[in-house]
């Protein structure tokens, strides 16, 4: 009798473990769709979107340039010493540009934005949740999802492609610095290879990825902050710290998962 109860409990536990992530995914999806609907509902929140574009976009330009430059420089170095073995160092421009535009630009730019803006979003909304500011919005008949999430979503959809484009351009220049200025590849050859190898569909693919990453990052980060009070592992300040950590880790993992899925469709 006791043994059958133990087996039943184990099965129930397994069932809960399987259902819980599905439920959570459903909640995140509903949160996202509500955000999208409120983004286009009147009155439009243009002023809030502009504020968030400044926070997510403008304030991230420096870190994007810095990481883009060094990523391009490393690609230039690695690419040169690999290609020179086959006597094809002239293709360095194409290798750097395609790596950046197709893969590294969207992914690394998104990860840098998670680190700079995503964590801040999760912490800010989490603190608003634990200090009853979100409850206050509800009592004023202000929809918290519309007020907090939709402008961030709109701003991210605008900012991510621009930041990705900046990352790509700065990265290509970084590759030029190491490939041409330091290692001696002809400058004209480097840029002509960039021009001849990059197709419009590569650029479109990169932008498509950055749009998807924008939606993923902002949804995960805002959702983690918004549901801080529901965390069972910690309350108050600890809950906010856990939400922020989860937001960053989950966003980075989901960027890489989504990158694989999108690449398999785009290729």
């Amino acid at each position: 009798m006791t043994q059958s109860y133990t087996i039943t409990n184990m099965l129930a536990g397994l069932g809960r473990m399987a259902i819980s992530p599905v439920q959570e995914f459903g909640r995140v999806a509903i949160f996202f769709f509500r955000g999208v609907i409120y983004l286009f509902s009147f009155p439009l929140q243009a002023d809030k979107i502009i504020d968030q574009v400044y926070f997510i976009g403008t304030k991230s330009v420096f870190v994007i340039c810095l990481t883009g430059a060094f990523t391009g420089m490393v690609l230039g170095l690695q690419g040169y010493y690999t290609l020179v073995k086959f006597g094809s160092e002239g293709l360095l421009g194409a290798a750097v540009a395609l790596s950046l535009i197709r893969e590294m630009g969207p992914v690394l730019a998104a990860i840098m934005i998670v680190a700079r803006a995503g964590s801040a979003m999760a912490a800010e909304i989490g603190i608003m949740r634990i200090s009853e500011q979100i409850d206050a919005l509800e009592t004023m008949d202000i929809n918290p999802v519309r007020f907090l999430f939709s402008p961030r979503l709109g701003a991210a959809l605008i900012s991510f492609p621009f930041l990705t484009a900046i990352f790509d351009v700065v990265g290509i220049i970084g590759g030029y610095v190491t490939g041409s200025l330091l290692l001696g590849i002809n400058s004209g050859l480097y840029f002509s290879r960039v021009e001849s190898s990059v197709l419009m569909e590569d650029i479109n693919g990169g932008f498509a990825k950055s749009f998807c990453f924008a939606a993923i990052v902002v949804t995960i980060c805002c959702y983690q902050g918004y549901t801080t009070h529901l965390r069972k592992e910690g309350f108050g300040a600890k809950g906010v710290s856990l939400s922020t950590t989860s937001a960053v880790v989950l966003s980075c993992v989901m960027i890489l998962v989504a990158d694989y899925v999108l690449t398999s469709f785009l290729l």
Binding site: I127, M128, S131, E132, Q133, D135, A136, T139, M140, D141
Partner: peptide
């Protein structure tokens, strides 16, 4: 929602937007 709009609430911890 129409009922809710008739109400206003002052929180114990103020809940001001910091």
């Amino acid at each position: 929602r129409a009922v809710k709009m008739k109400f206003s609430y002052m929180f114990q911890g103020t809940a001001l937007f910091d």
